[in-house]
């Protein structure tokens, strides 16, 4: 079962194409909706976003009624006197990304961690959504 409504896929495809184009031409504008990857194991959904250079206090993660929202801002470094850009490609500024998640999630157990510039949000499945092994007893 796909946890994400398929109606989001066209936008996802556009972003994939954006990324592919970025690979050829270089990113030209701040990415207002950064791409995500999502994974699933038996206990949880995992959503990750690449946020290099972000400090933990520059990212806000909220879960509200089936919608995960990730917001953040990477401030542009101020140019010191005598500095000159020979190549400029990294993007800065604000972003916001919301995902509708169709799984039953335990809201109290949602956690978010930043490691080496990668944000990982862990959304534990509620007990009813987790697989259970049923012991078969002889009658």
């Amino acid at each position: 079962m796909n946890a994400f409504p398929t109606v989001l896929n066209p936008a996802s495809l556009v972003r994939q194409m954006d990324r592919a184009l970025d690979q050829f031409f270089g990113a030209t504008s701040p990415r207002a909706t950064p791409p995500v990857n999502a994974w699933e194991d038996e206990q949880a959904l995992l959503v990750e976003m690449e946020l290099p250079g972000f400090k933990i206090d520059q990212v806000e993660v909220t879960w509200e009624r089936g919608t995960l929202t990730i917001r953040g801002a990477r401030p542009e470094p101020s140019a010191a006197e005598g500095e000159r850009y020979l190549h400029r490609e990294r993007t800065f500024g604000r972003f916001s990304r919301s995902l509708t998640i169709a799984h039953d999630i335990d809201p109290a157990g949602v956690t978010a961690t930043m490691t080496d510039g990668v944000l990982t949000v862990r959304l534990p499945k509620s007990a009813v959504a987790q697989p259970r092994r049923i012991t078969v007893s002889a009658n």
């Binding site: 796909n2 995500v36 994974w39 699933e40 690449e50």
Partner: peptide, 9 residues
């Protein structure tokens, strides 16, 4: 080992 649901990057 996790199952990918969505791969945008």
């Amino acid at each position: 080992g996790a199952r990918a649901l969505r791969e945008e990057f």
